[in-house]
């Protein structure tokens, strides 16, 4: 028997560049009186117990799995550690995974899609990215050799929530610029400004970033176009239009899109109106993997498709044309 969503232990992924304040936030989570028993998986220490928490050392083992239809990367060390924690899960209310400053968040997120034991007992609650307001622009603009990823960029792109830390070290103008650059990359993430990582822990530990019932909480700004474009290799593309989609065309288009661009599409989220389906179809994905389910019935509401893609080298016009091409033929008048 699988565990219901409410009973699954939530897992938070804490990521961020070196010096962004991750350790400060982690120490707060470990020492504040929040009443939660938290297990922390991280790369720095050996296994130690701090009050009700357990800190476990992890060594990043990334495996690529390509089975023809789906290509993804997973973290073998996490599968092993989470498996051990699940055997004692009555002792924990929450699991927190801290990644190194140079880690790619994708293998961590995809691990939750690619192991059914983990998927049946744990739920990925959200990816939290800490950002150093004083140094973010420098990290984003850093020239990388061909084929080398800009980790700061990817960590922002993957985030459900961004803690914009050290805001006391920048002036108003610079802060506005930092916020604008973040928004160019990721339109879905909420941004919380902080000093010394003093963010409400509820905003970090209860995000619901991968919760399909919250997949529709899209900020209306997701559709806005970027006015002052930098070298936008990683961007958000929001698409919205009314009408019903044909399931076969949609499957064909999604198959081609994920096969050709799955590596470049970091995250996707949205709601679709599918002909023959009285309910909204809600989905969210990481690269080529995604979860989808039938949500609330449309009832009398207008059937509107709303989708956001976050990724590298996204072609807005092609994405919109492709999705619009899935519209079902008009129903002939009776």
């Amino acid at each position: 028997m699988t565990t219901s969503i409410a009973e699954k232990v939530p897992v938070t992924v804490l990521t961020g560049f070196l010096g962004s304040g991750k350790t400060t936030l982690l120490n707060r989570i470990l020492t504040e009186q929040h009443g939660l028993r938290i297990a922390v998986i991280e790369n720095e220490f050996g296994e130690i117990g701090i009050d009700d928490a357990l800190v476990i050392d992890a060594e990043e083992e990334v495996f690529e799995m390509n089975n023809g239809c789906i290509c993804c990367t997973v973290r073998g060390d996490l599968i092993r550690i989470l498996g051990t924690l699940m055997r004692r899960k009555d002792k924990f209310d929450h699991i927190l995974i801290e990644t190194t400053g140079l880690a790619d968040p994708a293998p961590v997120a995809q691990t939750f899609f690619m192991d059914d034991e983990i998927g049946s007992q744990l739920r990925l609650d959200g990816i939290i990215t800490l950002v150093d307001a004083a140094h973010l622009l420098q990290h984003l603009d850093e020239e990388k050799s061909e084929g080398v990823e800009n980790e700061a960029l990817e960590q922002i792109a993957f985030a459900d929530r961004i803690v914009l830390n050290k805001t006391d070290l920048v002036d108003t103008e610079q802060l506005a610029e930092v916020r604008r650059r973040i928004s160019e990359i990721n339109r879905l993430a909420d941004v919380h400004e902080t000093v010394q990582a003093k963010v409400d822990l509820g905003a970090v530990l209860d995000v619901g970033g991968f919760d399909l019932s919250r997949a529709l909480d899209l900020d209306p700004a997701f559709l806005e176009d970027t006015e002052h474009q930098h070298d936008l290799t990683v961007t958000s593309v929001g698409i919205e239009f009314a009408g019903e989609l044909d399931i076969e065309r949609l499957n064909e288009w999604l198959g081609e899109l994920l096969s050709a661009k799955g590596v470049d599409i970091f995250r996707s989220k949205g709601i679709l109106a599918v002909r023959g389906m009285p309910e909204r179809y809600v989905f969210q994905g990481v690269h080529m993997l995604f979860d989808g389910t039938q949500g609330e019935p449309w009832g009398e509401a207008e059937r509107v498709n709303r989708v956001v893609f976050i990724g590298r080298h996204l072609d807005r016009a092609a994405l919109e044309a492709g999705l619009r091409g899935c519209l079902a033929a008009p129903v002939p008048a009776a």
Partner: peptide, 20 residues
Amino acid sequence: MALGPLIGQRPEPLPPDLVD
């Protein structure tokens, strides 16, 4: 009308005894 799952969609997680 029954609709099949979309491409790439992960079905419900498997029961633990089957995984075991």
